[in-house]
């Protein structure tokens, strides 16, 4: 039963966690100060520190990995850790999807008097008419959009871009597994470009929504759910793209082998997760 062949690597003391804590604290404090008194300095320091620790801490891990300190059991820890982290992200999005479904199927019909809520309608906003997408809010105190983004225009393009990027990433991964580094790098680069293209299109869509359509965060619950869901998804695409760029750089430096490339796989998992969230968004935010 003894398993003495491999030691589990327990790192020595490390300064990265405490620096990361300070960075996180500065970001949180700075965001609070920015919102409450309008000064962005602490937040900027926090972000600078955060970028520094991400770079430093991950460099340290990469260095240890390249030295071969990580046993198979360690690799498994990373895998499980990443899988559970993605599960936590799923639950984060679940909160926003839950809010969307709740509002659409319960809150808005109730405001219109459905079920046992006739008095709600009569007493609060008798002129309110339930509709989805909601252009005219009950209190009619928010900016009214003139139209909504056409799902089969830019959003469909984005769907194609993102699904395609998942395919190209898988091709890249398969190439890595048979040791074809050149092909891996090329397909990974295409994936990154597709990710960046997605972000550009999303930016254009936001610009059109704000400037031409009058759809903003203040456009009642429709604008709230629309921008929160697509916005947090966009942030995740940004993060995923950064991850893939780092993987590209590491591939070019000669990291990873056909057998050991956990960081690559983790980034790919993350990318596929972001892709799946988009499919949910496309269906429930744009089409239906």
């Amino acid at each position: 039963m003894k398993n003495t062949s491999e030691h589990y690597y327990v790192p020595n003391q490390s300064a990265w966690p405490i620096v990361a804590t300070v960075a996180l604290f500065f970001v949180a404090l700075g965001a609070g100060l920015l919102l409450n008194s309008g000064s962005p300095i602490v937040l900027l320091i926090g972000f600078a520190l955060l970028i520094y620790i991400f770079y430093g801490w991950f460099s340290k891990v990469v260095e240890e990995s390249e030295k071969g300190l990580y046993s198979r059991q360690m690799d498994q820890s990373f895998r499980l850790g990443m899988a559970w982290f993605i599960f936590s992200e799923v639950m984060f999005f679940a909160a926003f999807f839950g809010a969307l479904f709740y509002v659409r199927t319960l809150a808005i019909p109730w405001l219109n008097g459905s079920g046992s809520h006739a008095m709600t309608h009569t007493l609060l906003w008798p002129e309110f008419i339930a509709e989805w997408p909601l252009f005219h809010t009950p209190a009619a105190n928010s900016s009214v959009p003139s139209a909504l983004p056409d799902p089969f225009h830019l959003p469909l393009l984005n769907t194609i871009l993102l699904v395609l990027s998942s395919v190209t990433l898988t091709i890249s991964h398969h190439a890595l597994k048979i040791g074809n580094r050149h092909k891996t790098i090329n397909w990974l680069a295409i994936t990154v470009l597709l990710g960046l293209a997605f972000l550009v299109v999303q930016g254009i869509e936001y610009y059109e929504a704000y400037v031409h359509l009058g759809l903003t965060l203040q456009s009642g619950i429709y604008g709230s759910t629309f921008f929160m869901l697509t916005g947090f998804h966009g942030l995740h695409v940004t993060l995923g793209t950064i991850l893939l760029i780092v993987m590209l750089a590491r591939m070019r430096k000669g990291h990873f082998s056909a057998e050991k490339h956990f960081a690559f796989e983790a980034s790919a998992w993350y990318w596929h997760f972001v892709d799946v969230v988009w499919l949910g968004l496309f269906i429930f935010v744009y089409v239906l």
Partner: peptide, 25 residues
Amino acid sequence: AGTVTMMLTDIHFGTSFFDAGGGGD
């Protein structure tokens, strides 16, 4: 985390998650 984020945007960015006047609840 998602819930307190909705609170934050309701307070500072004019969203209507928890405001019936905007269609939230």
